[in-house]
C-alpha cells in the first residue's frame, strides 16, 4: 500500500456545500413525495424478499417479516428499494467523476489488520441492522429526514446515535487511531 497517499489528496466537495445541497434534496424529496430519504428499509425489503423465496411459510408466520408482505406486490417493489438503487448509482457516478472507483480495497485504522477490520465491519453492520429496526429507520430515514421534519422520534434517534457513538468511541479507539 502506498503510504504517501493521504486523505488530503482525495478531492471532496466542501462539506458545507455538500450539507446545503443535501438539505435542499431533503426539501425536494418531501415536497415531491411527502416523505424523506432512507436506506435501511431497502435492506429490510431484501431480507423479507429472500426469506420469502427460501422459506415462504416461515416468513409469512414470522411476526415481523409478515408485516411487510403484501399480496399485490413484492417487498422489492417499494420506494426505498428504488431510491437505494439510486444511492448506489449516484455514489458510482461521483466516484467516477472524482476518480475514486478502483478495485476492491479496505479502509481501516493504522493499528489493525484487514481481517480484523472486516470482522468488525460485519459486527457493526449486524448491530446497525438490529438498531435500525428498533429505531424505525437509520441515519437517513430517522435521524436526517425525521429531524428535518421536526419529528420528535427523528431528533431522539439523532442524539441517541451520535451520543452513543461518542460514548463507545473510547472503547474502540484502537480500530481507528
Amino acid at each position: 500500500m502506498n503510504t504517501k497517499i493521504s486523505n488530503n489528496q482525495e478531492r471532496y466537495i466542501n462539506p458545507y456545500l455538500g450539507g446545503v445541497l443535501l438539505g435542499l434534496l431533503v426539501i425536494l424529496t418531501v415536497y415531491i413525495t411527502g416523505r424523506g430519504l432512507g436506506a435501511s428499509g431497502a435492506v429490510k425489503s431484501a431480507v423479507v424478499t429472500t426469506s420469502e423465496i427460501i422459506a415462504p411459510t416461515e416468513t409469512q408466520e414470522n411476526a415481523y417479516m409478515s408485516r411487510f408482505i403484501s399480496d399485490d406486490h413484492s417487498p422489492m417493489f417499494t420506494w426505498l428499494v428504488f431510491e437505494s438503487l439510486g444511492v448506489f448509482f449516484g455514489g458510482l457516478l461521483s466516484g467516477l467523476l472524482f476518480g475514486r472507483v478502483r478495485k476492491f480495497r479496505i479502509d481501516k485504522g493504522p493499528g489493525i489488520t484487514n481481517k480484523k477490520r472486516l470482522i468488525f465491519a460485519l459486527i457493526g453492520g449486524i448491530l446497525f441492522g438490529i438498531g435500525s429496526q428498533f429505531g424505525r429507520g437509520c441515519t437517513s430515514g430517522a435521524a436526517l429526514s425525521g429531524s428535518a421534519t421536526f419529528a420528535l422520534g427523528g431528533v431522539i434517534a439523532m442524539f441517541a446515535i451520535f451520543g452513543s457513538g461518542y460514548i463507545f468511541a473510547w472503547f474502540f479507539r484502537k480500530l481507528w487511531i
Partner: peptide, 27 residues
C-alpha cells in the same frame, strides 16, 4: 435502537446509506 446504531457506527465505520456508496467505489 439509536444506542445500538451508535455502537454499530463506531465498530463498523459506516451507516446504511454511506455503505451503499462505499460499495459503489470498491470498498
Amino acid at each position: 435502537g439509536g444506542i445500538i446504531m451508535g455502537l454499530g457506527f463506531v465498530i463498523g465505520g459506516f451507516c446504511p446509506g454511506t455503505s451503499f456508496t462505499g460499495i459503489a467505489i470498491g470498498k
